[in-house]
Amino acid sequence: MTLRLDDLRLTRGATHVLDGVTLEAREGEFISILGPSGAGKSTLFELLLGSLAAEGGQITHNGQPVQGRDLFAFMPQRDALMPWRRVIDNIALGLEVQGLPRRAARDRVRPLLPRFGLDGFERHWPHQLSGGMRQRAALARTLVQDRPLLLLDEPFGALDALTRTRMQRWLEARLQETRVTTLLVTHDVREAVALSDRIYLLSPRPARVVEVFDVPQPRPRMETGPGEEALALETRILRTLLEGERE
């Protein structure tokens, strides 16, 4: 399985957003798309999900043009939990949209709750959960859809530093189990280095790929903390980012 974004171009109104973005995700890889705020990172997801059409370039999956949305499970920046649905029904939302009756969807979700640290909270309302728990529920809702590709749009951006580190650790463990192909949009360099197999660094708008970094460090990484190699890489990426802004 390979997803390819090939020379994607887009102009919205007077704004030149994407200036030929090319990237690739192979089976089981964790890919980060890193760039300054407003670079058009989230726009890439809108193209993948078909809510926007690119003006140039193409998106292919195993060499075929991508059609429809049943390839992707998407997690938006904020958790987007529905306040009027209980936790279990929020997680089951995607299954219900796919046509599963509510009861069957709940039965599929229930055994997963302990892995997401939500055991005993299925009947709670979202506003009764902590920030970290809400984010785990949103991730559970994404994973339970059982799509071949995950699209995570700055999933931990709104959390405090400690909770964020905890969540990254936890996400790494979950992905170790499933090895589902993941695209992560983030502006957090450390997060990208800690989680990714490969990092695509985008320029400020109009976005193009400035540099591609491979992260060879073995997993699990979060347990041991960043090694010297990872710290060096982090510094290198940060420097490239800052230089890009000075131009």
Binding site: G68, R69, A73, P76, Q77, A80, W84, V97
Partner: peptide
């Protein structure tokens, strides 16, 4: 909520599902 709309669309929800699952409860 715009994020909820985007989320439902990404799940493949059409106009009808969007109305019943998001727009109607949002209007309460």
């Amino acid at each position: 909520d715009r994020d909820i709309t985007r989320l439902l669309r990404s799940m493949g929800a059409g106009r009808g599902q969007l109305f019943w699952r998001a727009r109607l409860p949002s209007a309460l």
